Simulated assay, not measured.
Amino acid sequence: MQYITVAERSESVFTLCDDALPKREFRRRVEDVLRYLTNRLGRIAFVQVGANDGAGDDMVNAFVKTGRWHGILVEPLPGAMASLQQEYAGLPRLHFEQLAIWPDDNPPAFWQVNGASVLSSFSREAIMMHAAKYEDLAAMLEPIEVQTERLGGLCNRHGVIPEVIAMDCEGNDDVVLSTFDLAANRVPVILFEHVFLSSERSAALRDRLEGLGYRLLFDRHDCLAVQPAALPPLSE
């Protein structure tokens, strides 16, 4: 049986766009922007939602480990949170929050994959797009209770005005961003996962960000939204 990737099943307007960058090129562009912004500002305030264990293919890991980044790491799963805290042990000015981001006090069920340390989401449909990697993914799903908070409220509680927001929320990145007032605080850099978003939701998020002046770079899974002042000169 031929394996069908998540991107091949995606309805995201970014995935289907001819301008999608190859994964390696996209990652290089992300690193260029984050390096330029870090060097220009000296220190970076950030929030990462869906931080998982901090390892693996995490695109902000190396920057956090420089000690020049400070902020909030959000992860709802206890096991992943323990690994995350170990990954960044000894680094100053990091706040670890074991919760999920949701707009109100009545979130839907939050699902985790029993036996997988980092795969969880409010979107059961997004998790099921990974079904080809498991023998019986549906049987492994279980709902768990999680504490929730709005992203804007979380940042206010810690006194963090982010220059970078990074998200990997398995189909809920647009929901997370809806809980932060970007019109009042146009965060220079936003990194999010779009591959699990529908055509309508991904288009709405694209239009919202472009309407706020962001430049969008993307591959078939993720998108980087950048305010023009945070873009490195072409010579860099």
Rank of each mutant, 00 (worst) to 15 (best):
V146N: 06
D174T: 04
P76G: 06
E145L: 08
D136P: 09
A51P: 08
L21N: 10
D174N: 12
V64R: 10
V30K: 02
A7H: 11
E31K: 09
Q2L: 15
N172I: 04
Q147T: 12
M140R: 15
V160T: 11
D136H: 13
Y36T: 00
T15G: 08
N106I: 09
G67W: 08
V33W: 10
P107A: 07
K133Q: 13
G153T: 07
L197G: 01
L73N: 07
G171M: 01
F180S: 05
M1V: 15
E142P: 08
V13K: 02
D222R: 11
G152L: 07
C155M: 05
P22C: 06
I161L: 11
L16N: 12
Q48Y: 07
C169N: 14
R27C: 02
D19H: 15
Y214H: 08
T179Y: 09
S198L: 02
P233V: 00
A138E: 15
M59A: 07
G159V: 09
E25Y: 15
D53G: 01
I190H: 00
A138G: 14
I72P: 09
D173I: 03
D173E: 06
A204T: 06
A62L: 10
F14N: 07
R208L: 14
P103V: 05
G90I: 09
E163A: 02
Q147L: 05
F196N: 12
L224T: 02
D219I: 01
R206C: 04
P188H: 00
R40D: 13
N185H: 13
L205D: 09
K65I: 12
F196R: 11
G42H: 12
D181V: 00
